[in-house]
Design a protein around this nucleic acid. Sequence first.
DNA 1: ACGATTCTATGAATTAAAATCATAAGTAAG
DNA 2: CTTACTTATGATTTTAATTCATAGAATCGT
Lengths: 297, 297
Amino acid sequence: MIERTHLSIIREVDRLGTLTEAANALFLTQSALSHAIKKLEGQLGIKVWSKEGRNLRLTQAGEHILSLANRTLPQLEHTEHIIAQIAKGKRGSLRIGMECHPCYQWLLTVVSPYLEQWPDVDLDVKQRFQFGGLGALFSHDIDALVTPDPLFKKGLTYLPVFDYELVLVTHKDHPLANKSFIKPQDLSNETLITYPVETERLDIFSKFLALEQCSPHKHKVIETTDIMLQMVASKRGVSALPAWLVKEYSKALPIKGIKLGKHGIDKQIFIGLRETDIEIEYIQSFIDIASKLSVTK
Amino acid sequence: MIERTHLSIIREVDRLGTLTEAANALFLTQSALSHAIKKLEGQLGIKVWSKEGRNLRLTQAGEHILSLANRTLPQLEHTEHIIAQIAKGKRGSLRIGMECHPCYQWLLTVVSPYLEQWPDVDLDVKQRFQFGGLGALFSHDIDALVTPDPLFKKGLTYLPVFDYELVLVTHKDHPLANKSFIKPQDLSNETLITYPVETERLDIFSKFLALEQCSPHKHKVIETTDIMLQMVASKRGVSALPAWLVKEYSKALPIKGIKLGKHGIDKQIFIGLRETDIEIEYIQSFIDIASKLSVTK
DNA sequence: ACGATTCTATGAATTAAAATCATAAGTAAG
DNA sequence: CTTACTTATGATTTTAATTCATAGAATCGT
């Protein structure tokens, strides 16, 4: 069996020319290398070197092993280097799952300072899950789940990172835009634009319209926040989004956010983690950065 | 240090699911594998697996090592397989150097039955050498040298494989074509076509014209035998080639071979080898096939 | 619910392998 | 032809790997 030591020996002898020097480089004795290769030769039934004067010349078989060494040893060393970084907590992969569409805008603001601080963390964001965000966490498809519904289960922890108010967005000249707050009935003649998700998971339905068994005149779905707000700005309908997001976009678009119900709809966003991961440094750091950035909003 | 055994263990556990089964597959005890990985984990400062119920799940570091295993182990196994063939004498590389231009035609007839018998031998033919054919043999750039000049040196052996007569080739209607043999003076008004080699190494000069201090009217060089004979066939000149080669081509071209001098010029071709290689089976076989095929000519 | 089963983990004892030491034997250079 | 430098090798010591014998933890079946 060709072992790593054999590869190292053959590579070093090729590099330095003699067994003796290779032995020094490997912090072993010349005798050790000689014995090691002798044994390998016995096992494989070939000679690795032939002696030429007092030099060693690789045989064909030896050349094959050298080529193997040059291909293989760098790979071994590379993974060892990566693992050393993992051990120091400086490297890892952080795959974030999103169960909350508008949170994507928020996530973007968290990501860039995070990447700067943790250059060796592979960051990935996923938005579709075969067995839901929870299943994805359990099956290690993702490492963190951004969600408004902290479904507590054994082995998982949730940490609140972000509070916001859900408001109705309309064109600033829309008849509803002057009201101090919206009632469910007010939407009966409106076109409501939402993300393409089941209505049970849309707060505007489950926490607002359903209270009075109302429904909008029409329901349109749109994938992206940008286009959604463009539609609102051109009076094609109204939508429900986080207040801070509406505030942000209202600098550029003629839109306005209005409270939903007398007391408004307050939402809280959580990050869910596997309990085994909470002590990982680069994951804790992500939670820290996420919480700090969100307080200032 | 990640050793081959660690890679094997991690690969087998991934394939079979449990340490116990992996241990059976590797003809070791479950305890051995557990201890081995434990030690590795200590050295690298990471966990390879985390226990999930009574199953093991690879950590990020573990995934890195598994990926390494899947890339590296097949390469190790592949070279071991090749070396096993080398050990059985069934595989090797045979790089043949040619110091004799027309011999290339002869070599082609040897090569095809040889390749059939030794499918795992890498055959290569070289015709240019930085320090001559001899130097190429010594520096292991080639393994066999086809040459008409057996320059005996310590560490080398030569074996005769092929006898032929060097003849003058002319168009069949050429004035010289009716002579029973050619004298050096006969070429004084002819255009002589040869391979592009130093004249000292051309037998037509060193072993024929030089005897009477003659030289041809003109001297042209051409790389390939085919074109050379096309030229002769279109009366652009005469050349000197092996009789068997002329005989072969005269089926298709209007050419004729004539004896050079009263007694003709007889040549012998040798294959030179390093003495250390003469017992290698696939090299002996090459000599055998070469000799046998040449006797029938 | 609980015993049987099927895993992994671990400490101590055993076995095997690797490294060293001391030295021989071969080659090259002055 | 002696000196310096190389690899090879047998005996000994040191180190590492493997096993054995159990314990502990999770799952399955009744």
